[in-house]
Amino acid sequence: MSFSIIGTGSALPKTIQTNDDLTEYFETSNEWIVSRTGIEARHICIEESILDIALEASLNALDNAHINPKELDLIICPTLGGDTVTPSLACLIQEKLEATCPSFDLNAACSGFIYGLDLADAYFCRNREMKILVVAVDAMSKLVDWKDRSTAVLFGDGAGAAILSNGDDLKAIRLTSVGNQHALCIPWAKGNHPLLKDQETPSPYLLMDGDEVYRFAVAAICNDLKTVVKQAGITFEDLDFIIPHQANLRIIKSAAKRLKIPMEKFALQINSCGNTSAASIPLVLDEMNRQGKLKPGMRIALSAFGGGLTTGACVLEWSKKSF
């Protein structure tokens, strides 16, 4: 089955922090961060709630799709978590939009948007005449340890959304999961049941083995892109753009070199946003849509990887006529 993307939207918090701004929190430098990651700045939720940016991205996508929230049949929100454990972020977005459809969150970390597209695709098997909002939102600034310079510099906050409708854009999709707590982990609160012994509380913030994640990420992009391109019956030359998960420019460059794909084909936003987790791919997709870079018939590959460990990739043939 398949679907078409009839609208995109995104939102970034107002507060921008450059690498120089971060030197106030720990010993680091713009040169160190740029040379190792390609990141120059990131947006941080200070004034906004996670719901605020999720809602703004959703409204932008609905506006771009020229549909009313009441027309939505499903809201899928790929996220590590919103402002509350429950209600889900998706339910709060539904309330604010005054939509009436089933709504739920999906946790596949940075691969969440591709997982959301795959799930939506399954719903289109049941009913072609649906309108589905996939809005990927993460506020990593609330999940990283701002005393750990090796990880805090990597992330930013953002939201990206797409409205899916009856159509034939999706040509191939692939998901993978390999459970691994060591490479990347954000522990949950342990609770305070009286029988729980006083154990040393682990850090509640993100823990990452950067070297292991780097190797996993490069392999994920290479394997997944080769697979979905083959499934779609095309070659890398047939792709107009590749939107990779924006985790680290060095990861993208390494994968590009291994796949022998020119860097010009990779759409990038990492310099201004850092790693926005599930939001990173739809943020770039929306930017390209708004800039008029996407034309009917263009082939675009999306490739994501993240905690889980999860990976996901797909090939889309863009059909939307204009922004």
Partner: peptide, 8 residues
């Protein structure tokens, strides 16, 4: 060579 070069 930095740590990522080493991984590479």
């Amino acid at each position: 060579l930095d740590s990522l070069d080493t991984v590479e």
